[in-house]
């Protein structure tokens, strides 16, 4: 046994027990007969057939669609903020970073319920408008835009910080050289800063997408379950339906779909190439 392998054993064992084993357990369970609670049943594809024959695709599409919209919106929202954090805000950067970080110490559900109080009819926003102008506007709560608002709000830090790191990777000397060689501000941005900060943007997008595809609280709390993402279907299978094998099969399919999409993106944008390793 090489010293390197010996040294890696604790981590290998930890990963096998903490990462691989649960995944294997969920995958194995997805082949157990419906509504059973044992690993010892006769393996079957019944759960996967049930999913294919059902309308679960609606939930898959909602989850993937909402995650994609969140990523696109966050890319446009977070980039200027990240740029400001690295290049513009100077000594205020720490304060701005704290403003984005501190909410992470509060439970996501509590933050979302805060939005409910803000958006609800006669709540902070509409109640104030009503008392000031006498206008009773319709609330946007329990609608699709409210869900997207919640997802953009919750996942902003996950896009922002990798992006900030990405932008800070762009050497000042390179930017200066581009300016000295006559590049306009737009050219510096498009041909120097954007490509060189791409690893941060890409990692931010991937991280946000993977997390957002597993979102459930936003659709429940702000969306009033007007939309059922796939994570909610999985939750129902594991709770009210007590159909753990079906829930496991849905989870496995979700992992496969997300894994395939991430691999597809990574093939298109090779991180090693972006990071200049080859």
């Amino acid at each position: 046994m090489s010293p390197g392998f010996r040294a890696s054993l604790p981590v290998v064992i930890f990963l096998l027990a903490g990462f691989a084993a649960p995944l294997i357990a969920v995958t194995w369970f997805s082949f157990m007969p419906a509504r059973t609670f044992s690993f010892a049943g006769a393996a079957t594809l019944e759960n996967y057939r049930t999913i294919v024959e059902s309308t679960s695709y609606i939930s898959f599409l909602w989850s993937l669609g909402l995650a994609a919209v969140t990523v696109v919106l966050l890319a446009f929202i977070a980039y200027p903020v990240a740029y400001g954090l690295v290049r513009v805000f100077g000594k205020w950067s720490m304060l701005v970073t704290l403003l984005f970080t501190i909410p992470l110490f509060v439970s996501e559900n509590i933050r979302l319920y805060g939005w409910v109080l803000f958006l609800i009819k006669n709540g902070v926003l509409l109640g104030t408008i009503k008392s000031l102008f006498g206008v009773q506007a319709e609330s946007m709560l329990f609608t699709l835009p409210a869900i997207i608002l919640g997802m953009v709000y919750v996942y902003l830090p996950f896009m922002l910080f990798p992006m900030s790191l990405g932008i800070s990777m762009v050497p000042q000397d390179t930017r200066d050289a581009a300016v000295d060689l006559g590049a306009s501000r737009w050219q510096v941005f498009r041909e120097v800063e954007l490509p060189l900060s791409m690893p941060g943007i890409l990692i931010g997008c991937l991280l946000t997408f993977v997390l957002a595809v597993g979102a459930i609280a936003e659709a429940k709390v702000l969306g009033g379950q007007q939309i059922i993402p796939i994570t909610h279907d999985i939750e129902i299978a594991f709770t009210y339906a007590q159909n753990w094998p079906l829930g496991a099969a849905l989870a496995v399919l979700l992992m496969l779909v997300v894994g395939a999409l991430v691999l597809l993106v990574l093939r298109r944008f090779d991180l090693d190439v972006l990071l200049g390793r080859r």
Partner: peptide
């Protein structure tokens, strides 16, 4: 203007740390 000194290697480390 802030010009954070950051190598490609510790960029990956920091990203991973944030994510973790």
């Amino acid at each position: 203007m802030t010009n954070v000194s950051l190598s490609r290697r510790n960029f990956m480390q920091q990203s991973a740390l944030w994510a973790a």
